Simulated assay, not measured.
Amino acid sequence: MAMTLMLSPDDAGIARAAELLRAGELVAFPTETVYGLGGDARSDRAVAGIYAAKGRPSFNPLIVHLPDLTAAEDFAEVGPKARRLARTFWPGPLTLVLPLRPDSGISPLVTAGLETVAIRIPAHPLAQRLLRAFGGPLAAPSANPSGRVSPTTAGHVIEGLSGRIAAVLDGGPCAVGLESTIVLPDPSPVLLRPGGVPAEALEAALGEPLSPGGDAGKPTSPGQLASHYAPEAALRLDATETREGEILVGFGPVRGALTLSENGDLVEAAARLFATLREADRLAGPGGRIAFAPVPDTGLGRAINDRLRRAAAPRSN
């Protein structure tokens, strides 16, 4: 990738950032907490690019950023308790985990194959202007290499991601604070991650207590372990040829009925993983079997293999 652009926080800079995002590129932008690494949440390739740029080790759910509650309703079902919290605390550092609309168009890489989506309405003025100029949902984890300190200036973003992303929209230093609070609001509110909005304030708005944590076996948001996508068919990994009754999913030189990437592109493979797994499951049919060709366990390949190992793991009845 070419040198990462530093964009000014004016109309021209915002227009250029929105143009890059519409083209599937990645742009870092400030929120009230830290800089986020934004990509079109409807694009498999853009979201896979976020994982690749960060070196994120596994497909965990990502938070989708939108400008207001009306926009959120286009992508998720907003229940009564969610609406109460949204009207009280949005825009701000509160993320709500909501049922995903079937026609949302959100990439399954954003939700890690779950039927819920985590949505936040940032309060930062520049983030708001960018979201409105872009006109769509932005998946945006922190704009730093995985495991590093979160960035609170555009310079911090450049230190970690220069050459890996298209641009940084420079909004100056962020007001350093806690990450967003994450709540599963309906039907019974659950605090999934404490953060910038105190639990006491949430409980006061709801008029009822929040249950702590969540079911570790069925995580529903960023900040928790990702649930694996369990196909009906049995999975065999590191396959180099098809056995009788199997659907082989190829990669690179290993050819199959389906492929993650004919030319061995890990970003393409990541972008296609969930859709290909579902298609293979459909082709295999009841009681069928799926074989996956070896994928290099480097870079984004580590994330792909992590998801495949989870999908292939023994399941309880």
Rank of each mutant, 00 (worst) to 15 (best):
V47T: 08
R56M: 11
L69D: 09
A52M: 11
R42Y: 03
P57F: 09
K54S: 02
K54C: 08
S58N: 14
L37E: 00
R45F: 12
G36Q: 03
Y35E: 05
D68N: 14
L37D: 02
V34C: 09
F29M: 09
I63H: 02
F29H: 07
N60H: 15
N60T: 14
G49R: 00
A48P: 09
T33W: 05
A53P: 01
T31Q: 08
L62E: 04
I50E: 00
P61Y: 03
A41I: 11
L37C: 07
V47C: 09
P61G: 08
V64D: 04
A72Y: 01
I50K: 03
E32K: 14
P61W: 02
D40C: 10
P30T: 06
G55Y: 05
D44A: 15
K54M: 12
P57E: 11
E73R: 15
T31D: 06
A53M: 08
G38T: 08
A52Y: 02
P30C: 10
A46P: 10
G36D: 04
G38E: 05
R56C: 08
I63L: 11
N60I: 07
A46L: 13
L37K: 02
A28S: 14
L66N: 03
A28I: 05
D40V: 09
D68I: 10
L69Y: 03
E73L: 11
A41N: 10
G55I: 09
A53Y: 00
D44S: 14
S43Y: 02
G55S: 12
A48E: 09
P57Y: 06
L69H: 06
D74Y: 07
K54T: 06
A72R: 01
N60G: 12
G49T: 09
G36F: 02
D40K: 06
G55L: 10
S58V: 13
D74G: 14
L66Y: 01
T33E: 08
G55P: 05
L66V: 15
V34E: 01
S58Q: 15
A28T: 05
F29K: 00
Y35T: 06
A72K: 00
